[in-house]
Design a protein around this nucleic acid. Sequence first.
DNA 1: ATGATACTGAAGTCATCGCTTCATTAATGG
DNA 2: CCATTAATGAAGCGATGACTTCAGTATCAT
Lengths: 106, 106
Amino acid sequence: MSGPELDQLFHALADPTRRAILSRLSHAPASVSALAEPLGVTLTAISQHLRVLETSGLAATQKLGRVRTCRIAEPGFTALEGWIASHRAQWERRLDALGDVLEEDD
Amino acid sequence: MSGPELDQLFHALADPTRRAILSRLSHAPASVSALAEPLGVTLTAISQHLRVLETSGLAATQKLGRVRTCRIAEPGFTALEGWIASHRAQWERRLDALGDVLEEDD
DNA sequence: ATGATACTGAAGTCATCGCTTCATTAATGG
DNA sequence: CCATTAATGAAGCGATGACTTCAGTATCAT
């Protein structure tokens, strides 16, 4: 889970169209055309988004004939949860420590 | 947890300098100067990063005198974990379904 | 008051992003 | 074989991103 990989991962998730694609794929696999149809963008745009999702490990695709079938992939989500898990402990300790200080507020 | 908020959140996390800031702050609060020192960038750059982190709910700052003290904030991380939690079930169901199909691979 | 310290605002630069159009390749169906 | 369909490559465009420098504003110490 190196730095550039995390850059790619979070960057991939930062775009609403890509998150919509992921949401769609988490329901069922789909072709590029099927993904494009409800999103109001070009096939080309979807292809580009898919490349981003693929290199960040969030989606995987497979071309059979002229149809590319896209689905959710594991490595991206594993990396995401791994990063959060590796920081959660410190966050919670820090946020608890803040709670002690913030008793004058609110 | 609306769309634009998620955009901001993931965008904030996509930058290595900002993640370094968060990592530092998850250890202890720090001033802007203290954050800048080990990162090899300008004070101005840190100020700009802090604005991003603050609007995405990942950090909070407070200026006393001429020193701005920065610390981890809760809403950002809550939103992050909330988003993941709301998708994990479908992902896992999907990835399990893939496992059944991927017996020809690897 | 004076000078140093801690930061912020404005403006500019260079790279990257998301998207489009146009052209092309490749597979499929009549 | 020919037309349609599915997708990709190339190139360009407007917008945004990360960063810098330079100039300013407060605050603090002496």
